[in-house]
Nucleic acid binder design. Structure first.
Lengths: 219, 219
DNA sequence: TCTTGATTTGACCAATCGGTCAAAGAGACG
DNA sequence: CGTCTCTTTGACCGATTGGTCAAATCAAGA
């Protein structure tokens, strides 16, 4: 029959050069639009326009709006957790943690749309990411919380709840991507990320500095 | 003519008891839906259903979707900045700042939808709040940054960028409302806010503790 | 009771939504 | 040149969107 048998499938590797390029452009556009408007607020027309394609042409490369969003989210968690995975249990604790903070901040600076896409998904109750959060994310956090706990018990850094420490790192770094407009509104023309790097370095040095008056967590 | 002259206007005080009640219900429903789906993602049908009204009936009390959203945002910034305004320049610096952190955290716990509505607006580039951010918000931050600067210069708290300190307080407290699903996914059944309060208290005590090795900001 | 104004709703509208389809175009190879 | 596959698009579809409107209902006073 007149079967359009060559329609590219959802995820598998694109065969031709042009397919790779157009799929890339669509994901780029989808990232821009989804991160700004959320899933429901985004429209195929806007994504298609942003990618420089007609809507039917966009739907030739992706079977649905959902498929674009899913593919974006799939890669996201991995990318987002990479800096945590780069944390070396055998390294110097303070340097490792400060390095993690810095990498996370640079990620927020260089990939703000990805950060906002993630934020949007979480804000909406993580309807499509919940399993990944309760599975992969939770496991990874627990793993590195144990590492941090080890550093604390060894006296290398000040005692602090490791999981909440990780939350704090996320919150303080992603804030500069997710709330960029607000930060810029307050700072004016000043570049947010320059001040941020020095500030976060200072902040986490103070939080983690092991010394002086001993443990005060239970007080 | 058959003029429906009694249609309540956008903002002014509702005349009857029933108007006050229904408008309240609509704003409640709007808060729930807008905070979850963002402006574009929210639908009048869902808001009406959530409020227990028919769509035309909802539009009898508010002239448009935009009007509901605007009214919600208008009250929001004020409520959100109140804890900062409660900061007493004549009080004990550490206690004042820790109190501010605590109040902000309780706000995030008790009014998570408001926090998420705000986050959604910022994420979308603050299309309806930009003026308020660059005006009221910025002015208030600068005002209290000066207060904090005074405390630092007097040696009451450790030297730190006051504006970034405020950003950090916002980020660390709002995180528990805006990213609640993620936090809960990691913590499991544990109540996020119990651990959070102790953690943030510890964190900001360490950040603000003035002592020991003198200024290290310019190093 | 009747009247008057406030409230509620079913039916409807134009615009936009996600998505389909058949047909037209483009490129590669013989 | 013809042909085969990949790509692109205009026209279109049913559903949903924000919003309107005239008519119905309700509440309370005269």
């Amino acid at each position: 029959m007149t079967e359009t048998s060559a329609q590219p499938e959802g995820t598998p590797a694109p065969r031709t050069r042009i397919q790779r390029r157009k799929r890339e452009a669509i994901l780029e556009a989808g990232l821009t639009v989804f991160s700004q408007e959320g899933f429901r607020g985004a429209t195929l027309d806007r994504i298609a326009a942003e990618a420089g394609l007609s809507k039917p042409n966009l739907l030739y490369y992706f079977p649905s709006k959902e498929a674009i969003h899913t593919e974006l989210l799939t890669g996201l968690l991995h990318t987002w957790l990479d800096p945590l995975r780069a944390l070396d249990p055998a390294g110097d604790p303070l340097a490792e943690l400060l390095g993690y903070v810095r990498r996370k901040l640079l990620l927020a600076r260089d990939y703000p749309r990805e950060s906002r896409l993630f934020a949007n998904e979480i804000l909406q109750g993580a309807p499509r990411m919940r399993p990944a959060l309760e599975g992969e994310l939770r496991a990874l956090v627990e793993e590195y919380a144990t590492v941090i706990k080890g550093w604390i018990d060894a006296g290398h850094i000040a005692p602090i709840d490791p999981v909440h420490l990780i939350f704090s790192i996320w919150a303080l770094t992603q804030h500069f991507a997710d709330f960029e407009v607000q930060v810029r509104a307050v700072l004016g023309s000043e570049d947010p990320f320059e001040g941020a790097e020095a500030h976060l370095d200072t902040v986490f040095r103070r939080i983690l500095r092991p010394d002086a008056d001993g443990p005060r967590t239970s007080a």
